[in-house]
């Protein structure tokens, strides 16, 4: 039996605007999503913002009800027996929120230990153990309002593990953390996976999923567009060559025009700070650079570089719908 089994999951949100003339709208955040996670697996759910990752996680942790389909965690239906699910899963989300600012780290953990049913006689030892694991020993009596984002995130992880859950859901845990803090956090997640925890991780950082996950599902516009091991996904784009062209003032249609050229497998225009980068993937035996340079619609040219495709290229190609078949 899989630890997490999701079958044909759908979630529709209904919104309304206006005062006198109410306009109702429905948004399908998750559409026919199916996947399973095995015991001890670190499963990555990847996708851009608004892809449906958080909605899927929130259904699995019983915060939302699905509109259709089923979701089971440890064989328990999340819609039918939410309390049984809650006792056996942990949930950690990224960002500043989710902690009591005016309480110390210790009191935050004490509070949630009580709510999550940790035996009173075990609470002190468990909190100390977790503080040590996330590297917050010595800071536990300080109020959370003075914590950096990285410290808060580590405290979140400790909170999510208080009741020693069998399954841990991590929703973009490294979002907004500096590279050093994010690396330390990834180390903690890897340690948990090594210890045998089943982990479902959502992220939009491809390298993070590549580093941590055994299985990945790429979700876009509420639907899963690809799944497999990181190697499987890489194999979608390992053939060929990638040319990156820095541009200034390029119109959106540049990417579409590049896609129409012979030998081009995919093309996307990305904003990277003040510069735009046209990323074009082509077959290895074709030099597409001159043809691409001829259709820049007067955009100012910066550096041009060539490299082999990466997992990130696979991800971008998948979510932009330009992945080669």
């Amino acid at each position: 039996m899989s630890v997490v089994e999701v079958t044909g999951l759908r979630r529709i949100y209904e919104t309304s605007t206006g005062v006198l003339r109410r306009r109702h709208r429905t948004i399908e955040a998750v559409h026919d999503v199916s996947f399973s996670v095995e015991r001890g697996e670190l499963f990555g759910l990847l996708g851009p913002n608004g892809a449906g990752k958080t909605t899927t996680i929130k259904i699995l942790i019983t915060l939302l009800l699905p509109t259709a389909g089923t979701a089971r965690v440890l064989g328990i239906d999340v819609a039918k027996d939410p309390r049984a699910v809650r006792q056996r899963v942990g949930y950690v989300f990224g960002g500043d929120r989710g902690l009591y600012e005016r309480l110390s780290a210790w009191d935050n953990l004490r509070y949630f230990a009580e709510l999550y049913g940790v035996e009173p006689e075990r609470q002190r030892a468990r909190i100390q153990e977790l503080l040590e694991m996330v590297g917050l020993t010595g800071r536990e009596r300080e109020r959370v309002e003075g914590f950096s984002r990285g410290m808060r995130q580590r405290l979140h992880i400790a909170r999510g593990l208080l009741h020693d859950p069998e399954v841990l859901f991590l929703d973009e845990p490294t979002i907004g953390i500096d590279p050093v803090g994010a690396r330390a956090l990834r180390g903690t997640i890897a340690t948990l996976a090594t210890a045998g925890k089943t982990i479902v991780l959502t992220t939009h950082y491809m390298f993070e999923a590549d580093e941590l996950c055994g299985q990945i599902a790429v979700i876009d516009k509420g639907a899963i567009v690809a799944r497999g091991t990181p190697a499987d996904l890489k194999s979608l784009v390992t053939e060929g060559n990638v040319v990156e062209i820095e541009l200034y003032g390029a119109p959106e249609r540049v990417a579409a025009d590049a896609r129409r050229l012979d030998g081009v497998q995919s093309a996307t225009l990305e904003e990277r700070g003040h510069v735009q980068v046209l990323v074009v993937q082509s077959a290895t035996d074709v030099d597409i650079t001159p043809a691409v340079l001829a259709c820049l619609h007067g955009a100012r040219l910066g550096r041009i570089s060539s490299r082999e495709p990466t997992l990130e290229d696979a991800y971008v190609a998948l979510v932009s719908g330009t992945c080669p078949d």
Binding site: I61, T62, L63, R83, R86, Q87, Y91, F93, G95, R97, G98, L99, Y100, F112, L115, Y116, G117, R159, H163
Partner: peptide, 10 residues
């Protein structure tokens, strides 16, 4: 964001 955590507590 603590309301979510209260709600998903057992």
């Amino acid at each position: 964001g603590t309301l979510e955590l209260i709600v998903v507590a057992p």
